[in-house]
């Protein structure tokens, strides 16, 4: 049963990702991205990473994509701006193909390296993927990157306020 569910959600996430780049209505594209993010969250659940799954939906699908859809609706793009440029399609597909091959090669390299690492990984601990497990690792092993990220976010927020204020004046 888990296999069936896995294939359903994997297919949904790929289909959503394809729709994001192919559909010419930006609102539908945003929604497809929501579908992709949601399906990926379900795949995280199959990997026993409950916390990551919940956060993925809460932050990406729930918060960031709402801002996306807000922006798209406010911009109110005209028909010409969305018109499909058929001449450049072969070139675009060519670039896409090259990128795909490079990514496939790099990820195969990554998998080879990753297999060696997981041998001594933490996946054996009982609270793997739970809130307690993630919290413990974040506040012990990865405390420095975690705190640096918070500094980065604060700097970004201050930057946004500064830029918005200057344009307001």
């Amino acid at each position: 049963m888990e296999d069936i569910l896995f294939y359903i959600f994997a297919a949904a996430s790929v289909a959503g990702a394809l729709l994001v780049v192919t559909h010419n209505n930006p609102v539908v594209s945003v929604l497809s991205l929501v579908l992709t993010l949601f399906s990926t969250a379900v795949l995280f659940v199959f990997l026993l990473a409950d916390f990551i799954a919940a956060i993925q939906i809460l932050v990406y699908a729930g918060a960031i994509m709402v801002l996306f859809i807000f922006t798209v609706m406010y911009l109110n793009l005209r028909k010409e701006a969305l018109a499909f440029d058929s001449k450049s399609v072969p070139i675009k597909f060519g670039i896409l193909f090259v990128i795909l091959i490079v990514v496939a090669y790099l990820s195969s390299l990554g998998f080879k390296r990753g297999l060696q690492i997981t041998g001594e990984g933490t996946s054996t601990s009982t609270n793997f993927g739970t809130v307690e497990g993630v919290g413990e690792v974040l506040f012990t092993k990865y405390i420095l990157p975690f705190e640096l990220t918070s500094v980065l976010i604060v700097v970004a927020i201050i930057g946004v306020v500064a830029i918005a204020k200057r344009r307001f004046n």
Binding site: F51, A54, I57, V66
Partner: peptide
Amino acid sequence: NVGLLYVFAIGSLSV
């Protein structure tokens, strides 16, 4: 395990 977060995640989708 993430009960409360689940409720909020689903709630954030209801927009």
